[in-house]
């Protein structure tokens, strides 16, 4: 079984309102994206709110198109473009945050999407990644951000998945995730 299938298998039975940390090697990065945006979202019929800070939304969209992943139900909260000074082209599925340090604005964009999208359909918030946000923010403010955002999602019945890249992580980040997540899933290549 490949990484995509393994991530899918470990996530498909999680109940609503769950907050899951996925710890993966950078090699598995695009497999994890595929498992979340394609497999899980279709299986559970979810809209995906994708908070991207690792790469600009345009780059992720290009990869998704290459992998032939349908994007109709994927909405980006893009805090990866401003840092790279990438031109922000208007797109109905991408909301830009001026800087990855504006954590409140990430919460505001997520809230906007939750209100704007079909309320009957379930939601999955995918945070990619805790490590790239940690480059720009102190761990204390990041922990506070996750605590508020994740609990808010929990109260609304949404699924939350936060990605942590092993090579970029630290004990402090791991501890912070333990505090705010219900479960940690270790994405191993040799599963």
């Amino acid at each position: 079984m490949g990484v995509v299938e393994k991530v899918f298998e470990s996530l498909k039975e999680i109940p609503e309102s769950s907050v899951i940390a996925l710890e993966a090697n950078s090699d598995a990065y695009f497999d994890v994206i595929r498992a979340i945006t394609e497999k899980i979202s279709i299986y559970k019929n979810l809209d995906v709110i994708y908070i991207n800070s690792t790469l600009p939304a345009n780059s992720i969209i290009s990869v998704m198109d290459l992998l032939d992943i349908k994007r109709d139900n994927i909405y980006f909260v893009d805090c990866g473009s401003s840092v790279l000074l990438t031109q922000q082209t208007k797109n109905g599925h991408v909301l830009f945050v001026e800087s990855p340090t504006m954590l409140e604005n990430i919460m505001l964009k997520v809230e906007f999407l939750l209100r704007k999208l079909d309320r009957k359909k379930g939601k999955l918030v995918f945070l990619d990644s805790i490590n790239s946000l940690a480059i720009h923010n102190s761990l204390s403010i990041l922990s506070e951000f996750m605590h508020i955002l994740f609990n808010n999602m929990r109260s609304k019945g949404a699924y939350t998945v936060v990605l942590s890249i092993k090579e970029q992580s630290s004990d402090d980040i791991s501890r912070a995730l333990t505090m705010v997540c219900d479960e940690k899933i270790d994405v191993k290549e040799e599963w």
């Binding site: 954590l103 409140e104 604005n105 919460m107 505001l108 964009k109 809230e111 906007f112 209100r115 704007k116 923010n137 102190s138 204390s140 403010i141 506070e144 951000f145 508020i148």
Partner: peptide, 21 residues
């Protein structure tokens, strides 16, 4: 609170303190 002026109205979220950073 931090606010955003959006087409669906004013949205508010708590301002983060970051442990006093």
């Amino acid at each position: 609170y931090v606010l955003d002026l959006t087409p669906i109205g004013v949205l508010l979220v708590p301002m983060l303190k970051g442990g006093g950073d």
